[in-house]
Design a protein around this nucleic acid. Sequence first.
DNA 1: ACCTGAACACCGTTCAAGT
DNA 2: ACCTGAACACCGTTCAAGT
Lengths: 191, 191
Amino acid sequence: MEGPVPTPARTSLEAIVAAGRGIVDTEGLDGLTMARVAGAVGVRAPSLYKRVDGRPTLVRLVLEDVLRELTEALDSVAVTGDHRRDIVAVAHAFRDYARRRPHAYALIFAPLPEGARPDPDLLPRAAGPVLRAAAALAGPEHALEAARTVVAWAHGFLSMELGGGFQLGGDVDAAFSYGIERISLALGPAS
Amino acid sequence: MEGPVPTPARTSLEAIVAAGRGIVDTEGLDGLTMARVAGAVGVRAPSLYKRVDGRPTLVRLVLEDVLRELTEALDSVAVTGDHRRDIVAVAHAFRDYARRRPHAYALIFAPLPEGARPDPDLLPRAAGPVLRAAAALAGPEHALEAARTVVAWAHGFLSMELGGGFQLGGDVDAAFSYGIERISLALGPAS
DNA sequence: ACCTGAACACCGTTCAAGT
DNA sequence: ACCTGAACACCGTTCAAGT
């Protein structure tokens, strides 16, 4: 009278994403193969397709985990009320995250295939602290443009720093401080 | 008395790089497979290894062609002597190139494997016009930091624009003009 | 001297077969 | 219900064999 006994699951979506995240952190996106992830959770590659559509979806889930972590890091920056100081602090927190998790950071602005694009709400959500500080500094009507200017500069800087684009030497820490100083001045009300 | 007759070459390194460049321009780096390139020059994939070490080297040669083209585009920007106008003009030429050849542009700051890194002189060479305009604007002792600030911002902006990172809407052209305006002001002598 | 097919070790993905 | 080996269509790369 018993139906067929369902075999118990040997892994889970959470475990798969966590394993993928670990691989990305240590080896970067290229290391994220289905066989590698499967091995890390104790199954064979075909079994992953019971929980994930395919590799693009897995990349998206890993990226969304990265964005969650970045959001947390930026949200934890204290707001002092000195708008210029605030935006400098957020920029440094952004850089700290990128340097701590360079492979994860690279994923955020990587040119990803359609199916690997994250939930479009998550990037604006992560940028919230920047947007608020920029609005306080540049005024509400220029908030979006000002925030984009800061994020674009910071990302461009980190992209070059992490990619080894700063070959002319010089003090990279000082260059970052110089840049955010100048930009925060430029976004403020004409003085 | 005749030795073995050497068979004539059916292709050349130049043709291979040109074919690779064409594929990158239309389909991006992912489309650049050895079989695709071989087909475009009329041979089979293994024959490419007579002229190129392997795919990383081919990627490097294509990228160096891109840098040569970008250098040409930036060098052709007229210098007016109004330093602020000059740096704005170079920034717009930079963006124009990136929008005209988005896949080629993406290659410049892509995280490439060791063997695909371009000659380290070429990127500073391409940045020459930016460096000169930044030096004129910010003074010689801040030239490098100022140039890096401009390039970082412009690249970050384009990386977000081309990658679809501007989901909050707004006028992207206006945002670019706003950004370079503000940054060129910020780099100038304290007024 | 150059080009080729066959082969190797990998990819992502599908699917029939096992439990 | 889940997992697997085998298979397929691709990769990059090597190499013996053909001309």
